[in-house]
């Protein structure tokens, strides 16, 4: 019986499942407000509350507001409130680990839809070189530092109140998310102070880069997301994990080739068991693309919810008995690339 369940799970068409889950999550988190659903403000995804009908708020907003309290208040009793809020965030996070990024985050879903548009237009995607990858992947930690430390500097009086929610002012999600409800009111540059002007201008620039970048590169923004950095710090606490059995791995690189985030360690690291890296969005495409039995698996506690199997691989790659008709070719025609 258990074997049957495993077989069904391992053979699933990941693309379809993922698309369905992403669509449902998108509708829920972006339009849930119409149905008066409210999940609170500790969500570990970019469910931006600037989108008025959103069903909750991204955790970075209350975090910034809480940390910007005056230092004496913060280190007094109010600090407990911060810790409680953080535990709330952790509570949400523990269920899905970084799969929040790959399956639920509406911003990520939007990027995947832009990718689908690009595929339809038959435009090929861009990738980073290894050097670019290593340099750029540090940027998310820089944003996380901005999220955490600018409010603290406000709390001790070094920065004024125009820096409040500074990351939100430059976040492209603030500009883009309200678009889903037809609200373009965030397409502004706020000239009320120099700081606000610079930050909102950065916001517009990042939004523009986001739109273009997500079109040419798969999951462009996730590379720079401070929420991803925050997730990764606590990823070991979660109940779902991405694991690898290095002895079964042939380093064929299939997982690396399909990975949206270009994580090389998936293919090349044959010693670590926990293969979740800080860029990973747990989309599980690597498991879907691995042709070895049980080399990569997605565990919920100790239950192997989704493992790589040969059978699953063959099903997903549509390697079935080919038709007897010969392959078509054209002598002088155009290639349909």
């Amino acid at each position: 019986m258990l074997k049957k369940i495993h077989t069904i799970l391992n053979n699933m068409n990941l693309q379809k499942v993922r698309f369905t889950v992403q669509l449902l999550s998108f509708v829920l988190f972006v339009y849930g407000g119409y149905f008066a659903i409210d999940f609170g403000s500790k969500l570990p995804i970019f469910a931006c509350p600037y989108n008025k009908e959103a069903v909750g708020a991204c955790y970075l907003i209350p975090l910034q507001h809480q940390l910007s309290m005056p230092a004496q208040v913060l280190l007094g009793g109010a600090g407990i409130g911060v810790i409680v809020g953080f535990l709330g965030f952790l509570f949400w996070f523990i269920f899905l680990n970084k799969a929040w990024c790959g399956y639920v985050c509406p911003f990520g879903t939007f990027q995947d839809w832009l990718t689908m548009l690009r595929k339809k237009m038959r435009v090929r995607f861009s990738i980073y070189t290894q050097n670019q990858f290593e340099d750029l992947s540090k940027i998310k930690y820089l944003f996380l530092i901005i999220v955490l430390f600018i409010p603290l500097l406000m709390g001790i009086g070094v920065l004024g109140s125009e820096w409040s929610a500074s990351f939100c002012q430059m976040c492209p999600a603030r500009v883009v998310s309200p678009m889903f409800s037809g609200d373009f009111s965030q397409w502004i540059i706020d000239f009320s102070s120099i700081t606000a002007m610079i930050l909102t201008a950065l916001g517009m620039i990042f939004a523009g880069l986001f739109l273009l970048g997500s079109f040419v590169k798969k999951r462009f923004f996730c590379f720079f997301c401070p929420m991803s950095a925050l997730h990764f710090i606590f990823s070991n606490l979660s109940m779902v994990q991405l694991k690898k059995d290095g002895s079964k791995c042939t380093k064929c690189g299939d997982c690396y080739a399909v990975c949206d985030m270009q994580i090389k360690d998936i293919a090349d690291d044959v010693t670590s068991i926990n293969i979740l890296r800080d860029d990973c969005i747990m989309c599980l495409k690597c498991i879907a693309a691995c042709p070895e039995e049980d080399a990569l698996h997605f565990d919920i506690f100790k239950f192997r919810a989704f493992s790589s199997t040969k059978e699953g691989f063959e099903k997903r790659m549509n390697i079935e008995k080919p038709k007897q008709a010969e392959v078509k070719f054209s002598q002088k025609g155009h290639s349909d690339d």
């Binding site: 042939t250 690396y256 080739a257 293919a267 693309a289 042709p291 790659m317």
Partner: peptide, 27 residues
């Protein structure tokens, strides 16, 4: 031993996946 896995079935991606299989998996 090693089968080719392709992410986007367009020409360049298929060529890249094929090349990877013949190089990285080769013992």
């Amino acid at each position: 031993n090693d089968m080719v896995a392709v992410d986007e079935w367009n020409l360049y991606d298929m060529m890249d996946s094929i090349s990877d299989k013949y190089l990285k998996a080769c013992t």
